[in-house]
């Protein structure tokens, strides 16, 4: 670090970690943090004042700053497809999910686990059955996935969900669309069941609404369509149930909520008819995160199947490269 007048100020402000005395270091650190906080507060206040002043004068407020995030600066991706793309529409009109989206096929999902599931996994399955309206649980017993694919196809199922666990923690989800595929393999993490979510409610049996966020690339659209094909097309809005698949940086966050509109402007039921309508959420669970590992054409065949996309380690050379 260069000494001298110019170098001293940032040193004092920014680097209390260089101080060897622990007590002193703590003091300095606290002071620095306080200063930072103060500065930030002042910045915010100043900005607010400017905005207010501009509004009062009838001018346009200064433009809001857009934070520079990792996904905001993602690498240029050729595969971002516009929804009005003619070729995209032509393909979606005849792909594996076209029947579902044309409301010709109702979803019917077979849910099963790995062999000898733990109690925890079965609890997750139970909550998943509450999440998916057309889901049926079958014991895995000793059947292979290929056998189950055959079985489920013959009985008119449209998807097969296999849940895996490692050391009693659910860690994988295999989603096979039937009868023609594709097969998506997800890593499952950050699972929270209803009991672990404070204030969580029990879901009703209404058909939920579906929110799919940020599935923007060609691969993302395909995965999004596959996930959407698990749910019936006509939501019952009475139930105010929403299932969200939110993609952010290739992680798909799955959430399940019930919403309510507070029309009186507050929970206490204050008698102000002009107050804005508030929307409140209650989470219903389960809550988990999915990460796509591979997407294989056709039904499950790990040896002879052709991959549309499979994660490879050399894809992880940039933090700003996303595939969904």
């Amino acid at each position: 670090m260069a000494g001298g007048g110019e170098g001293r100020a940032p040193k004092r402000r920014g680097l209390p970690s260089g101080i060897k005395n622990k007590v002193k270091r703590g003091e300095v650190h606290a002071r620095v943090q306080q200063e930072k906080k103060k500065e930030k507060k002042q910045r915010v206040l100043k900005r607010k004042k400017e905005e207010e002043a501009a509004v009062a004068l009838g001018e346009a407020p200064p433009p809001k700053k857009i934070p520079r995030t990792i996904e905001g600066t993602r690498e240029v991706d050729d595969t971002l497809v516009r929804p009005d793309d003619q070729e995209l529409q032509a393909e979606e009109a005849q792909d594996e999910f076209s029947g579902h989206f044309a409301r010709a096929v109702a979803p019917k999902v077979l849910v099963t686990t790995c062999r000898r599931p733990s109690k925890g996994l079965l609890r997750f399955v139970a909550e998943l059955l509450g999440l998916l309206p057309g889901a049926h649980f079958y014991k895995r017993a000793d059947y292979a996935v290929k056998q189950m694919v055959q079985y489920a196809t013959a009985r008119g199922f449209t998807a097969l969900l296999v849940l895996h666990e490692n050391r009693k923690r659910p860690n994988g989800l295999l989603l096979v669309s039937l009868p023609a595929g594709p097969t998506a393999h997800f890593r499952l993490s950050s699972l929270k069941l209803r009991a672990d979510i404070p204030g969580a409610g029990r879901p009703t049996r209404h058909i939920p609404e579906l929110i799919l966020n940020n599935f923007s690339t060609r691969l993302g659209l395909r995965v999004g369509r596959q996930l959407a094909s698990l749910f019936p097309q006509a939501p019952q809005f009475r139930g105010r149930r929403v299932v969200t698949f939110h993609n952010q940086r290739d992680y798909i966050f799955v959430r399940h909520h019930r919403y309510i509109f507070e029309e009186r402007g507050g929970r206490k039921g204050g008698a102000d008819p002009g107050a804005p309508v508030l929307a409140r959420l209650q989470e219903c669970g389960p809550r988990f995160t999915l990460k796509l590992l591979s997407l294989q054409k056709g039904t499950f065949d790990s040896k002879a199947g052709e991959y549309e996309w499979a994660h490879k380690s050399d894809m992880d050379t940039s933090r700003r490269r996303f595939f969904l």
Partner: peptide, 8 residues
Amino acid sequence: FPGSVSGS
């Protein structure tokens, strides 16, 4: 051949 990504 590097740069071949992921699909069959």
